[in-house]
């Protein structure tokens, strides 16, 4: 009887020790991608997008590379105006839908809406009044201008919008890496629609001219909107 108890006790003690030791050993390092039993082509010998490999020509390990200076992708329309105030005013005057062989259309507006909600809405707001979610939550310190006010002031041409999307303006960064030329134009079209508060061009132009003091009131109206209202 005593012998059995003794045996059980020893048995238990050693079992505990073994379990603890083993579990400590098996716990894996989160930075290790795991154990590759047989080569299963997880580590690509060829260059992969965003991957690392040893480049035998340059000796570094980058797979993403800049194209040779001056290269232009197939079907790409070069934007000829510089990132300056003059470039902006030139784009305003001469860069239109036609420059890209496009025109104002409902399909473009719809595509623009999707792109706008993806790339612009976070700051510029669903209605284009500058009250995007991260501006309202005050996580982003700068409030973007309202398209509605800008449309009233200076007609918000597609060339100007295109220039801003391409190069950025003020604290806004360039979105050229995210939007291709056609998409930029689609966004521009939707931004203009927001600036017209959803009215079509004819409707907007035919609507009664704003009263003389309305421009003065504009910033105050903007101010009233600026207070976060959830």
């Amino acid at each position: 009887m005593k012998k059995t108890t003794n045996t059980l006790f020893t048995f238990g003690a050693i079992a505990l020790a073994a379990a603890a030791l083993l579990s400590a050993c098996v716990k894996s390092n989160p930075d290790s991608p795991g154990f590759e039993f047989m080569p299963d082509m997880y580590r690509s010998p060829g260059p992969e997008t965003n991957g690392m490999y040893i480049n035998t020509v340059t000796g570094d390990s980058l797979s993403n590379r800049l194209p040779a200076a001056g290269s232009i992708p197939r079907g790409f329309t070069v934007f000829p105006y510089a990132n300056t105030a003059e470039g902006d005013s030139l784009a305003k005057a001469f860069w239109t839908y036609k420059s890209l062989g496009m025109q104002r259309s409902e399909a473009n507006e719809k595509a623009g809406e999707e792109l706008y909600n993806r790339y612009c809405m976070v700051c510029h707001g669903k209605k284009g009044d500058g009250n995007g979610p991260i501006v309202v939550s005050e996580k982003y310190p700068n409030m973007p201008p309202s398209y509605i006010a800008r449309m009233k002031e200076n007609n918000l041409s597609e060339g100007h919008i295109y220039h801003v999307v391409t190069y950025g303006k003020g604290v806004m960064g360039s979105h050229a890496s995210q939007l291709n030329p056609q998409e930029r134009m689609q966004v521009a079209q939707y931004v203009q629609l927001l600036g017209r508060e959803g009215k079509s061009v004819e409707e907007y132009n035919n609507s009664p001219a704003p009263a003389a003091d309305s421009t003065k009131a504009a910033p105050v109206a903007g101010a009233a909107k600026a207070t976060p209202s959830k």
Partner: peptide, 27 residues
Amino acid sequence: LIGLFIFGVLIVKGWYGLQGVGIYATE
């Protein structure tokens, strides 16, 4: 008895260890 136990633990742990074989899978 002890030998048997250690053998059992090794089998179980080894089985789970083998399931962990496969890259980019740690758990």
